[in-house]
């Protein structure tokens, strides 16, 4: 129960999205999205492929632009203003499906690059921070290797540590385990669960329903660019409301 105490949600708003719409040319990817994320909340977003879930979280650090509506992250509204975008990106960490580590830099250099160039941290301090987070994801001994020499699970843990080095207040995960072997999924999920227990605000696009049940306080189901249903994981899995959700759950839980 001590863990649950740490996983308290505060009443401070971390992300506020109102009436957001996005198009790719003529294609309407995101339709009228409204959502509020409180600080310390852990949200799992699921849905069939092409439902817009990745696009939604990529809008939160403006890797994608939205055309209509409002996104406010930590009190900063995302507009075309470069300063706002910089501010949001330095507060929001992101982990990608394909890790996207920089192959020409060592693990340590991958971790210190952004703190040195964006946060203007002295190199020594940045390296100390990097080693702290590498120990936390349990691979400090790999610091001087190159990404290509690591396994997929190790690379993804490095990617998580790389984001953490920027001391973000919000973490976005875009299908972090989809490109991994079953054995490596566990080590990455363990890292993410640990992060959740420390009270990080997390938005995670994933189909790992075990993870959703273990740490999420809310599961959001999306289809065709819309939020179809959202609920606490227990309710969501035991008593889905819409037909579409039922169909989706029967397909991913059925085998």
């Amino acid at each position: 129960m001590a863990e649950a105490a740490k996983m308290q949600v505060s009443d401070e708003v971390a992300i506020q999205i109102t009436g957001m719409n996005k198009w790719y040319g003529q294609f309407h990817v995101l339709r009228d999205i409204n959502m509020t994320v409180m600080r310390g909340e852990r949200i799992v977003i699921c849905g069939p492929s092409g439902s817009g879930k990745s696009t939604l979280i990529r809008c939160i650090n403006r890797l994608e632009e939205h055309q209509q509506g409002q996104i406010i992250v930590d009190g900063t509204e995302l507009t075309n203003d470069l300063k706002n975008i910089d501010k949001v990106r330095s507060e929001v960490g992101m982990v990608f499906q394909h890790f996207n580590l920089f192959p020409h830099l060592t693990i340590l250099e991958n971790l210190t690059l952004a703190p040195i160039w964006v946060r203007k941290v002295p190199k020594k301090e940045a390296e100390e921070t990097a080693m702290y987070f590498l120990s936390k994801v349990k691979i400090p001994e790999q610091a001087h290797k190159y990404p290509g020499q690591l396994s997929g699970g190790q690379q993804q843990r490095v990617a998580i540590a790389r984001s953490l080095c920027m001391k973000p207040r919000i973490m976005l995960f875009d299908e972090p385990t989809s490109a991994l072997d079953p054995e490596m999924i566990k080590e990455v999920l363990d890292t993410m669960i640990q992060l959740a227990q420390e009270g990080m605000t997390m938005l995670c696009v994933t189909h790992e329903m075990g993870f959703a049940q273990a740490v999420a306080n809310r599961v959001i189901f999306m289809d065709q660019g819309q939020i179809v249903e959202q609920n606490a994981p227990k309710e969501f899995f035991s008593n889905p409301q819409s037909e579409r959700t039922k169909l989706f759950l029967s397909q991913i839980l059925g085998h």
Binding site: L63, R89, M94, H98, F102, A159
Partner: peptide
Amino acid sequence: SRGQSEAAFALGLRPNRTTRLI
């Protein structure tokens, strides 16, 4: 790959630094 510049942007690097460093 596009992922390289996206990862750099997500870390807060500006486009010119991304081009030069990544």
